[in-house]
Simulated assay, not measured.
Amino acid sequence: MLRLAAFAVTSALAAAAAGPLPPLPLGRLLASPDRLTIAVSDTGNRRVDGEYRLECRPVGGNHPEAGKACARLEEFAKEGKDPFAPEPKRQMCTFQDGGPATARITGTWHGQKVDRTFRRKDGCAITRWNDLEPVLPSARS
């Protein structure tokens, strides 16, 4: 018991002598890792259609471009943007068809639940898809 008390006092004195600890990024420490499931279909390329797991912080999963995909998502975070936010209701979009490609992304990103479907149904949706590459596969001809 005496050894334990001496250890506690010695540890406290050593910590005090070392000075205050640097501020810790508490949000990052408490945040769970990003884990997303990406189901892609009808791209016209059987090699990219399928279901992928993407993990960031640390990078992992079976996504074919996991490192680049996580880096792209981190760019959104640094810019303060949510790539999974709903599409704005009132926006002018070109009437163009980007093909039948569909992607559904579910999971967690920066502590927030994600459940969003992406299609290439008009100019705005095509832009959203392209902005998410390489999280989503390229569907450009």
Rank of each mutant, 00 (worst) to 15 (best):
A17T: 09
A18Y: 12
A18L: 13
A18V: 03
G19L: 02
G19M: 02
G19R: 01
P20M: 00
L21P: 00
L21Q: 07
P22A: 05
P22S: 01
P23M: 01
L24T: 04
P25L: 13
L26N: 10
G27H: 08
G27I: 03
R28P: 00
L29C: 13
L29S: 08
L29N: 09
L30Y: 12
L30F: 14
S32V: 12
S32P: 12
P33V: 12
P33R: 15
D34I: 10
R35T: 11
R35W: 07
R35H: 14
L36S: 05
L36E: 05
T37N: 07
T37V: 15
T37L: 11
I38P: 02
A39G: 03
A39Y: 01
A39E: 12
S41T: 12
S41H: 02
D42I: 01
D42V: 01
T43M: 04
G44S: 07
N45G: 09
R46A: 15
R47V: 07
V48N: 01
G50L: 06
G50I: 05
G50T: 06
E51R: 15
Y52V: 05
Y52I: 04
Y52E: 04
R53Y: 02
R53V: 11
R53N: 07
E55A: 12
C56V: 01
C56S: 00
G60N: 02
G60E: 01
G61W: 05
G61V: 05
G61D: 07
N62D: 15
N62V: 03
H63N: 06
H63Y: 09
H63S: 05
P64T: 03
E65N: 10
E65L: 12
A66E: 03
A66Y: 04
A66G: 06
A66I: 03
G67T: 13
K68F: 04
A69P: 01
C70M: 08
C70S: 08
C70D: 06
A71I: 10
R72D: 07
R72V: 07
R72N: 10
R72Y: 09
L73V: 07
L73A: 05
L73Q: 04
E75T: 10
E75A: 11
E75S: 10
A77K: 08
A77Y: 04
K78C: 00
G80A: 07
G80P: 06
K81T: 00
K81V: 09
D82H: 09
D82A: 09
P83R: 02
P83M: 04
P83T: 06
P83L: 04
P86C: 06
E87G: 03
P88Q: 09
P88L: 08
K89G: 11
K89C: 05
R90G: 11
R90P: 00
M92K: 15
C93W: 01
T94I: 10
F95D: 14
F95R: 14
Q96T: 15
Q96W: 00
Q96P: 00
G98P: 09
G98I: 08
G99F: 05
G99I: 09
P100Y: 03
A101K: 01
T102E: 13
T102V: 14
T102I: 10
A103E: 03
R104H: 09
I105V: 15
T106E: 11
T106F: 02
T106C: 03
G107V: 13
G107T: 12
G107C: 12
T108P: 00
W109Y: 15
H110N: 15
G111V: 02
Q112M: 14
Q112A: 15
Q112F: 06
K113M: 08
